[in-house]
Design a protein around this nucleic acid. Structure first.
Lengths: 360, 360
DNA sequence: ATATATTGTGCGACTAGGAGT
DNA sequence: CACTCCTAGTCGCACAATATA
């Protein structure tokens, strides 16, 4: 009987350790040993088993393994609705980054949807109770986000992309150092000869926005530049355009503007052009996020590129190095954005007289 | 003993059918009956079990269920690298749509990465062999995509977002009717009084691009409009801008341009503005995809919005109604995009003399 | 004692085939 | 023969405890 036709591939049924063992003439446990502690198996036996594994194209059944080890090896990630049609390439890059990083450690990313805030928590609870996922990657974190604390209280491992900015931070996170970014923008502009650098940001209250403002303010103070050139509005082109007009109408108008986002920078560029001024030469502009249209010819906006891929890799690293159960010391990582210099912040001549003259 | 302290929640261990049964004084099988065929259980017993389920916050373990039923209830979706920094909001919307639709049927979406083309197939094979996923949702389908045929041959259920455009189509797909979209654009422009409508598209060979061209051509023929105003280049603003210049320099220049993408439309708008012409009034432009910046004030580009959410829902519906194993009759669905009319295609006055005059 | 291979048991849900009224 | 409930065994892997040389 052995070696007979009863051990053929049996289309439909997938191979198991038992079927591999039978083909190799060993027990299922020996197959397991070959896979997990090959040094405990005699060379000859090991090769026989490895041949059988290849013959049958055996791959361990993840589901059975998960049941036994009580780990899903799946990271939950909540896909939020697109917020106001915003151009969020950042999250797509992030998603790909965590997917890749997870795969390198034998994990996968599982998507789900949940209501924002408190109302979404039952969804997280359900995913855990069903053992659908082990751990979570959070993004789109908001001020006072309830998820972090809820997860910490239950000993569920997670890492967030972004701080909550609400006093005590619960759990680990990785974030981009917005302040360092805007400070780098100021340094760059100062180097280009600018002496009056404005900040165009969002209304107070958003952690991210306030952070970017702080970086600008710090750098201006460090260079001895005026720290009162601040305008704030919602993240829209029109609003930004209007505020830019106000800034340029000032008696001592700024020659450069650091913006909290590329959207604000777009409005800023529009107003500058509308006045017959040339971005870069007459008024420099720096945006934030390095969205795809920043690199478009005809726009060429200098912008701060967030290291999203690195953030994703770091999030997964922290998350998978974390032990389940009681929370260890929470870890934080702050990564610096890189300034992509384009023509919107180049070509300035410090002499104020040359501004109009340059238009011939 | 019953109701005693030995049945307490036992923090850490999650409830099982057995623990629920013990609490309710019945066997685990009765618990199963309560959940799956409640009519076979006496009312009184059922209520007792339901109470225990609620007390213990019992939720069936998906992993154990998957092992037994040999179904992962997970849909695999491959996240591609961002292609040349393009603004692909479409895929993000799609991802969210399939996630939601899957959840309504007790499924989830699992992400993975794979090499494009033939080289990615082993990744698909591995996911299946490991029983990590049951079925696949394909997107980013290319001309001559090997995946569809490979999956059909193995009896793996899948549905693609997009055709392969390569003769025989394997398996089911849902796609957006690009030809209907560009035809609708032509109809709209004809209604606005345009008599010379150009098409600005991609080089021949891309199925999607050729389809959009065909829709334009058909509609022009139907309206008796010239069908030779065609320019083709890669999907970039600069290239588009140059070609638009060529079109506008023609003896009989078009008064309207239908573009195969919003990116091309952006270049088109840029060239129109650079010539001191007004989009809409002087030369109308219609884009494709309705990307977020189409709605930006100052751009206001008319564009064809793909019904991505509907596509996602339909993909999942087809996919989950599909039986595993041998492929049934493949199904196809073609959904029409909606034209979002904005000022870039409004305000035209048929009288050619009024074009320059309108600038005062 | 070491090196090598094996049997036994359980993760939790699910199914078939009963058993007691 | 309903109605109600239960026992026994399975899915594939993981790990402990053992057997054989």
């Amino acid at each position: 009987m052995l070696g007979g036709r009863d051990e053929e591939v049996d289309a439909g049924a997938s191979p198991t350790m038992t079927s591999v063992g039978r083909a190799a003439g060993v027990s299922r446990q020996t197959v397991w040993n070959v896979l997990h502690s090959p040094n405990r198996v005699r060379q000859e036996t090991r090769e026989r088993v490895e041949d059988a594994i290849r013959d049958q194209r055996y791959r361990p059944n993840r589901v059975a393994s998960s049941l036994r080890t009580r780990t899903a090896r799946l990271l939950g990630y909540c896909v939020m609705p697109r917020q106001g049609g915003e151009i969020n390439v950042v999250l797509h890059r992030f998603l790909r980054a965590i997917t890749r990083a997870a795969e390198e450690r034998g994990y996968h990313v599982l998507l789900f949807t949940a209501a924002p805030g408190q109302d979404g928590l039952p969804t997280y609870a359900e995913l855990l109770a069903e053992h659908t996922v082990d751990r979570f990657v959070l993004s789109d974190t908001t001020v006072g986000d309830p998820r972090q604390r809820w997860l910490v209280e239950r000993g569920v491992p997670f890492v967030a992309f972004g701080r909550t900015w609400s006093g005590v931070e619960h759990g680990s996170w990785v974030d981009v150092d917005g302040a360092a970014g805007t400070a780098a923008a100021v340094d760059h502009l100062r180097e280009q000869g600018h002496l009056r650098i404005a900040f165009l940001g969002w209304p107070p209250g958003s952690g991210v926005g306030d952070d970017r403002l702080a970086g600008w303010a710090r750098a201006c103070a460090r260079h001895g530049l005026p720290g009162d050139l601040v305008a704030r509005c919602e993240d829209s082109i029109e609003a930004s355009r209007e505020l830019t007009g106000g800034l340029l109408d000032l008696a001592h108008a700024p020659s450069a503007v650091v913006c909290a986002s590329d959207v604000l920078a777009m409005g800023c560029l529009a107003e500058i052009r509308a006045r017959g001024l040339r971005p870069g030469h007459d008024v420099a502009v720096v945006g934030f996020d390095d969205t795809p249209f920043a690199r478009l010819p005809g726009i060429e906006l200098s912008s701060l590129d967030q290291p999203v891929e690195t953030v994703g890799a770091e999030v997964v690293r922290l998350l998978l190095d974390m032990l389940s159960g009681e929370a260890r010391q929470p870890l934080h990582a702050l990564l610096e954005p890189s300034l992509r210099v384009r023509s919107s912040s180049l070509g300035f001549h410090a002499d104020p007289g040359s501004r109009r003259e340059s238009e011939r």
